[in-house]
Amino acid sequence: MLRIALWQGAGIAGDLDATLAEVARRADEAREQGAGLLVFPEGYLTGYHVPGLAPGGLPGVEAALEQVADIAARTGLTILMGTHLDTPDGLSNAAVAFGPDGRELGRYAKRMLFGGWEKDTFRPGAAPLRFECGGLRVGVVICYDVEFPELLRAEAEAGVDLVAVPTALMEPHERISRQVVPVRAMENQVFVAYANRAGTEPDLRFVGLSRICGPRGETLTEADAAPTLLFADLDRQVLLDERAESSYLADLATARGA
């Protein structure tokens, strides 16, 4: 059994220290409520929409990530942090995972970039990120990635039980949380945890609507538009029971002649 926490909120734009203080507060709250995994939204550490962002424009981010690692170790949480990264190959819209000992588990770069600003600013990723947490195998995608069934199906075929989705869903795209996310969970018979931002950034208003869905497409918990910390208890046996009744992956393999 894994208790997962999603923070629906926003960091403090341009102030890494203040944002890290908020990360620490939310981690303490999640730990007090018995969570083992805490997921932050897309671009939480750096801000999502940063007009004019260019290589060299993210000073202090790597040092801030080291502090996130320290928070993970202090609280014993696995933390998935949305952040933009400055790499030798260019900027990436990423999520970085830290284990409960503070060890970095890996980095995921968003593969499907949304809109002109993202495509002009970031290099798309090419590789998955998967790790173990609380008896579940966790896969990661970011925001627009979830709108591509092929990416979620690849996670399910790789044996993932939970897909964590840091996101920055803005108006007028509420349908993605309300309609697409439950279907992705159902058609792949996995848990999907969709952690959105709250509030506004230049030219954008985020819709909130974070949610955690189960393998029947049922919503286990959901938020409105306000900042909030969501929790859900995820039992792998629920997945096994659903797959035993009728397994989409097994039937698909049979249809393919595998």
Rank of each mutant, 00 (worst) to 15 (best):
V165I: 14
V180K: 09
E157S: 12
V160Q: 02
E150A: 12
V180D: 12
E155F: 07
E187R: 09
V160W: 01
A185W: 03
L151G: 07
A164P: 06
L151F: 10
Q179G: 12
E150K: 05
V181N: 03
E187P: 04
S177M: 13
V183L: 15
P182E: 02
A164N: 05
L169W: 11
L151I: 14
L162Y: 00
G159Y: 03
R184Y: 03
V180I: 15
A154H: 01
R178L: 14
E174K: 07
V183D: 11
L162H: 00
D161T: 05
V165C: 11
A164L: 06
G159W: 05
D161H: 12
I176W: 02
A158T: 10
V163E: 00
R184L: 07
E187D: 13
E155Q: 15
H173L: 12
A154P: 02
V165L: 10
P172K: 05
H173K: 09
H173I: 06
R184S: 09
I176R: 10
A158N: 14
H173E: 09
A156Y: 02
P166V: 07
A164H: 05
R178P: 04
R175P: 02
L169F: 08
V160P: 01
A158K: 11
E150L: 08
R184K: 09
A164E: 03
V183K: 11
G159R: 06
A158W: 10
H173F: 12
V181I: 15
M186Y: 13
T167C: 15
L151R: 08
A168G: 09
V180N: 12
A158H: 10
E157H: 10
A185C: 02
I176S: 09
P182M: 03
L162P: 01
L152E: 06
A154G: 07
L162V: 00
T167I: 07
T167R: 13
E174L: 08
P166R: 04
E150H: 07
E187N: 04
